[in-house]
Amino acid sequence: MILSKKLRHISPKRRRTLTITAISGLFVVLVAVYTFWSMNTWSSYKTTYESWQKELQVSVDAAMALPGTTSAERAKKLTAFKNVSGTITSAQQSLCHTPVIIAWQHVIVGLRQHEEACAQTISKADTFGKKMQMTTSYLESEQTVAMTIEKTLAASQDKVTEATWNSQVTTWQDADKAIGKMSSGATFAPVKASALEKVKVLESTWQELLAAHAAKDKTKYTEAQSNLTIAYAALGSLSTVSAGQLAPLTTALQSAYAQLFSLKT
């Protein structure tokens, strides 16, 4: 009210000048505030994806640093690697999101490059995460088979008397069932098939030995005994089959790791 009373005493020309000056001042303030806020947002956009990438590498390195001598340690380490691929999946939804109010600014080449770099990072991380997921899933299956075999072997590692031969057949039959019903990915399928085949041979060779023993047939007994040696040696070659299947997975994982963390190998 006071201002409008005062303005009445000002000439119309001067009044227009004042109004324009006020509006311009307000505009300049608005531009300054918006610019400052945009600067901040873009700056944190860059640091967010860069630090996420750093943190991701720290967690991969931490998983790698875990001990892996015993099978329990290996299982724990495998879980740590699995958690890494989980982190990547959850980051994908939010990491490269640009707020709508500044989205138009990607017409500026320098800023668009940040968006592109972020997208590239998340895409490389996604590839790495998928390779890691495939590898850990393979290793989970491998560890399951190994555990089953280890349990079965435990029953026959000391001197085996004729009283326990019957139970050898049963334990190998159990191993056969356990491996048969486990689910596994396509890469592990040949290892599973090979494991089943070798376990079945052991099962039937022990049966052969039992039959020869019951018949007190020395020739058949000796034959079964040497077949048993062959069957155990064949089982031993399962780790070679597995190493062959795992190799392409680790090569792909290694290359995805190098890509993600910008390395020329």
Binding site: G68, S71, R74, K77, L78, F81, T135, L139, E142, Q143, V145, A146, M147, I149, E150, L153, S156, Q157, D158, K159, V160, Q168, L209, Q225, L228, T229, Y232, A233, L235, G236, L238, S239, S242, A243, L246, L249, T250, L253
Partner: peptide
Amino acid sequence: VQSLQDLPSVLGSMKVPNL
């Protein structure tokens, strides 16, 4: 990752049963 395999250690220490 390769060292996480369990089969090499399980099968490496396997002995043919001494009947």
